[in-house]
C-alpha cells in the first residue's frame, strides 16, 4: 500500500514562493560570502597542499604485499583475495617453493601476483579476507601510469610498495 504523505498546509504568502526563494538565496549567498571573504575554507589546493600527513591509519590506498621481520614473503598464494575481489583486479598463479629454499616448509608462494590498478576499487576486501596477513592497503593513492600495462602492479612492485611489516602473527614459526 502506498504511503500517503500529508502535504503541509501553506499560508497564502508561502504559495507565492517568493519568501522561499529569498530564504534559499540567504543560504546560498551566506555560503558565497563566507567563502569569498575567506572566513571559511573547506577545500584543499590539491597538488600544492596534500593530505598525506593527516591520512588516518585505516586509509585505504593501493593494496600491496608485505614481507615480515624475517624477510619471508607472507603471501602463500591461497587466492582468497583473487576470489573475493569484486572487480576481479587480482590475478595469481601459485607455485611450489623449491626444497632448497629457506622457507621450503611453507611450500607455496605466488609465482605471479598481479593487481590491475585500473580495476581496483580500493574496497579492502583482499586485506580483510587474507588468512596470512600478507596483503594490506597502503596509503599510496596517486596511482598513475601512461599505459594499461603500467597500471598493473606485478609481484615485485607490490612488495616494493608494501615493504616490511612487523608485529604480525607468525604462523610459520619454528615449531611448524
Amino acid at each position: 500500500m502506498a504511503i500517503v504523505v500529508k502535504r503541509p498546509k501553506l499560508k497564502w504568502w508561502e504559495h507565492l514562493y517568493i519568501p522561499a526563494i529569498i530564504s534559499g538565496m540567504r543560504v546560498t549567498l551566506g555560503h558565497f560570502f563566507q567563502i569569498v571573504s575567506r572566513k571559511k575554507k573547506v577545500t584543499m589546493q590539491y597538488p600544492e597542499e596534500k593530505w598525506d600527513a593527516h591520512l588516518p591509519e585505516h586509509y585505504r590506498g593501493a593494496p600491496a604485499l608485505v614481507t615480515d621481520e624475517q624477510g619471508r614473503e607472507r603471501c602463500v598464494a591461497c587466492q582468497l583475495c583473487e576470489f573475493i575481489c569484486p572487480p576481479r583486479a587480482i590475478a595469481i598463479r601459485p607455485e611450489e617453493i623449491p626444497s632448497d629454499d629457506k622457507w621450503a616448509k611453507v611450500e607455496k608462494r605466488p609465482k605471479k601476483f598481479d593487481i590491475d590498478m585500473v580495476r581496483c576499487i580500493y574496497c579492502g576486501m583482499c586485506e580483510e579476507v587474507c588468512p596470512e596477513q600478507a596483503i594490506f592497503l597502503r596509503k599510496d593513492y596517486a596511482i598513475t601510469g601512461t599505459s594499461r600495462d603500467e597500471m598493473v602492479h606485478d609481484k615485485d612492485r607490490l612488495y616494493e610498495i608494501g615493504g616490511v611489516r612487523t608485529g604480525l602473527v607468525n604462523k610459520w614459526n619454528d615449531l611448524k
Partner: peptide, 10 residues
Amino acid sequence: RVSAAIQDRV
C-alpha cells in the same frame, strides 16, 4: 566561480 563559492569550493 560563484557556484563554487556557494558550494564551499574554490
